[in-house]
Design a protein around this nucleic acid. Sequence first.
DNA 1: GATGAATGAGTCTTCATTCAT
DNA 2: AATGAATGAAGACTCATTCAT
Lengths: 216, 216, 216, 216
Amino acid sequence: MSIDAGSMTRAERKRAEQAAQLRAEIVDAAFAEFAAVGYHATTIADIARRLSVSPGTVYNYFKNKRDIVDHVVSRLEAQLRAALVGDNAPGTARTLAEFRAQTMRIATAVDALFYADERMARVLLFEVTAIDATMTERVLAMFDAAHQISFESLTDGARRGFLRDDVDIGATADVIVGVMISASVRNLRNSYPAADRQAWREAAVGVLIEGIAARG
Amino acid sequence: MSIDAGSMTRAERKRAEQAAQLRAEIVDAAFAEFAAVGYHATTIADIARRLSVSPGTVYNYFKNKRDIVDHVVSRLEAQLRAALVGDNAPGTARTLAEFRAQTMRIATAVDALFYADERMARVLLFEVTAIDATMTERVLAMFDAAHQISFESLTDGARRGFLRDDVDIGATADVIVGVMISASVRNLRNSYPAADRQAWREAAVGVLIEGIAARG
Amino acid sequence: MSIDAGSMTRAERKRAEQAAQLRAEIVDAAFAEFAAVGYHATTIADIARRLSVSPGTVYNYFKNKRDIVDHVVSRLEAQLRAALVGDNAPGTARTLAEFRAQTMRIATAVDALFYADERMARVLLFEVTAIDATMTERVLAMFDAAHQISFESLTDGARRGFLRDDVDIGATADVIVGVMISASVRNLRNSYPAADRQAWREAAVGVLIEGIAARG
Amino acid sequence: MSIDAGSMTRAERKRAEQAAQLRAEIVDAAFAEFAAVGYHATTIADIARRLSVSPGTVYNYFKNKRDIVDHVVSRLEAQLRAALVGDNAPGTARTLAEFRAQTMRIATAVDALFYADERMARVLLFEVTAIDATMTERVLAMFDAAHQISFESLTDGARRGFLRDDVDIGATADVIVGVMISASVRNLRNSYPAADRQAWREAAVGVLIEGIAARG
DNA sequence: GATGAATGAGTCTTCATTCAT
DNA sequence: AATGAATGAAGACTCATTCAT
C-alpha cells in the first residue's frame, strides 16, 4: 500500500499524487451522491458526472461500485475514530469533574462530526446498512467500537471511585452509544442551531452523570 | 378501503375475507424476505414463491413493490405503537416507584417486540431507510413518536414533583429513545438470553432514573 | 428433466409444450446466428430479434449466453452421435465387404450431416472452441468418441481376420477421424455437388481399406 | 514498409532494428497470450504487461488488435510453410522408398512444429478461426496449401509409376491433410512422448502408403 | 381472481483505442 | 518513441410490471 517515494522519478510522483487525488475525489463524489439519493439510486455515471469524468475512469480507480462504498465507509470510520480518541483516550480522567469534561469533549467532537455534515449520519445509518450483510457488520462494528471506548472509560471511573460501583457498566455504555445515535438521527430531521446543540449535550451528559456518579 | 359488510352476501364476505388474508400473507412474506436478504435484493417473484402464488397475483393486491413495503412498515408501526401505549399511556404514574415500574413495562414491551423478532429491527433500522426520502421520513416519525411519549411522561413526572425540575426533558427523552435504538441494534449482533436482557433493562432504567429523580 | 405429464392439466401441458418449443427455437436461432457471425459477435438481442422476441425473454429460458451455446453444442453432439451409431454399431461387420459397406454408411451419414448444414462444421470446429477451455474440451471429447468407435470397429475387424494384424489400430482410427474433419473443413470453402461427394467418399474409404485390408 | 538501409545512419539503423525487435516481441507475447487464454479474453494490456510496456506502445507498432493477430498468423504460416517445403519440395521422390522417406520427413517436420509448441495448434485451429470470416479464410487457405503440396507429390508419384494409377489423388490429399489435423488436435488433449509419436507417424504413413502404393 | 410468460428500460462493467505529456 | 490515464461505446443481464388467457 505504501509507496516508496524514494524510488520514484519526479514525474511518477506527480502522477501518483494526481491519482491519489482523483481517487479521493471519487470517494467524495460517491459519498455526496449516496447521501443525496442513496446507494442504490446512485449510478456510476452519476458519480462520474459530478467530476466531469467518464464512467470508465471511475473503473480505473475502483474495482466496482461496491468497492467505492467500502472506501466511503472507511473514510467515515477514520473520521469517527479520530473524534472518539484523540486526546480523549479512556482512563485519563481522575476526578468526576475531569470525567464530565472529557465526556463533554467527546460528545462535542462526535456532534461536530455529524453536525458539520449530516450526510455522514444519513449514509452511515440509513444507506449503507441496506447494501449487504458485510456492510451492515462494518457499521455494527463501529457501534461496538464506540461501546468499547465508553466501557473502558466507565470501568476506569468506577475503579477510581468517582462513579458508583453498583452501576452496570455494559448497560451504561449502551446508553451512551444510544444517545449518540439518537442525537445523530434526530438531527437529520430537524437541524438545531449550534447553541441549542451545546445545551442539549450538557443536559444529556448531565442526566447521565447524575445517574452514575458516586453519591456523597 | 373500508368494506360495507352489511351489503354483502355470504359468498362475497367469504371472498373479501380470503382477500384480506392473502393481503396479510403477502405483507408477511415480504417482511420475511426483506429481513432475510434486504429490500433491494428481494424480488416480487421471491415474495410470490414464498406463498406458492404467481407474481401477477401479488399485483392484484398491491400497486407495486413500493406499496408493499409501505404496508410492511405500517404493520411494524402498529406493533410498536401498541407496545408503547397500551396501559402505559403517559401521565398515569403518580410516584417515582410507579414511574419506574411504568418505564420498565415499556422497556420490556419494546424489548419483547424486537427480541421476539429481530427482523423488526433489521427491516426498520437497516433496510427500509435506504428506499427513499419518504420512507426515511416515516421511520424518523416513529422515532419522534417515541420521543413524544417519553417527553409527555417526563413532563408529567416533573409536574408531579418526583422528577428533578431542572432536568432538560427534551434531551432526556432523546436519551430514552437512544437507549431503545441502541438495545435493538446491539441485539442484532449478539443475541442475549432473556434473563440477561431483563438485567440489562433494569440497569439501564436504573441509570436513567437515578439521573433524573428528584433528590431527597 | 422429464416431466410427469400425467399430473398436468391440459393447460399446463400446452404451456409446457410451448415453452419447450420456444427453448428449441432459441437454440435454433442462436445456432444460426453463431454460424453467421460467430459466437462473440452475436448479441442476445440478435438472437431475440430473429424470433421477434425481447432480449428478456431469452433469459426466461436460459441462464446466460454461455448456457445457450451449451445447448447448441448438445444438440450438435446428439446429431453427430446419431450419425455415428444407429445401425452402424461397431463389431457387426463379418467380412471385408461388410466392413467396407459399414464404413461407407458411416461416412455417408457424417457427410450428410455436415453437408446438409455446413453451419454445423463452422460452429463446432471454428466458433465454439474459442469460447473457453470447457467448451474446447467438449469438442475434443466428441473427436475422442469418434475415435473410440473407429477403434472398436477396427479391433473387431482385425480379430475376425479381414484386416491386417500388423496395423496400428490407434493410428488408423486417428486417420479416420482426420478424414472426417478434413472433409468437413474443406466443404466449408468449396461446396461440392452430392455426386462428387459420393465419389470422394468412395475414394477415401478405398485408400483406407486398401491400406489396412489383410493381404491375399 | 521496406526500409532503405543504405540511406540510414548507424543510429537510425540501430533504432530500426530495435523497433523490428519490439514488433516481433509483441507478436510473440500476443501469441503466448492467445494460446493461454484465447483471443477474445486477451486484452491489449495483457500483451503489454508481458513485455513490461504500456498499452500505448503496442499501438505504436500495430494498428489495432486485429492487426496483431494477423501478424501472429503470418508467423505461423511461415513456420508451417517452412516445415512443408524445405528439401521436401514435391516431385523429388523417384521411388516408392524415396516417397515414403519424404513423406516421413514431412510428417516429422509438421509434428515437430506442433509438438514443440502445442500452442500453435491451439491458436491456429481453435482461437483464430472465431475472429472473423477473413481470418477463417486464411486458415482454410493454409489447409489448402497443404493439400496442394500433397496433391502435387501424389501426382508426381503416380506419373512415375510407384503409386497406383487408379487412386483418387484429390481425396488422398485430403486424407493426408486430415491426418495432420487429427494428429495436432489429439495432441492437445494427450501429450504423447516423442517415441510414441514416431511410432504413430510410421504407422499412419504405413497405412497410407499401403493404400496407395502400386501393386506388384 | 389467478396465472406466468413477455417485456424492455436501466446499469454495471469491460476494454480497444486515443492523445496529451 | 513511450507512456498510461481517460474515454465511451457496447453488451450482458435483471426484474418490476403488464396483460392475454
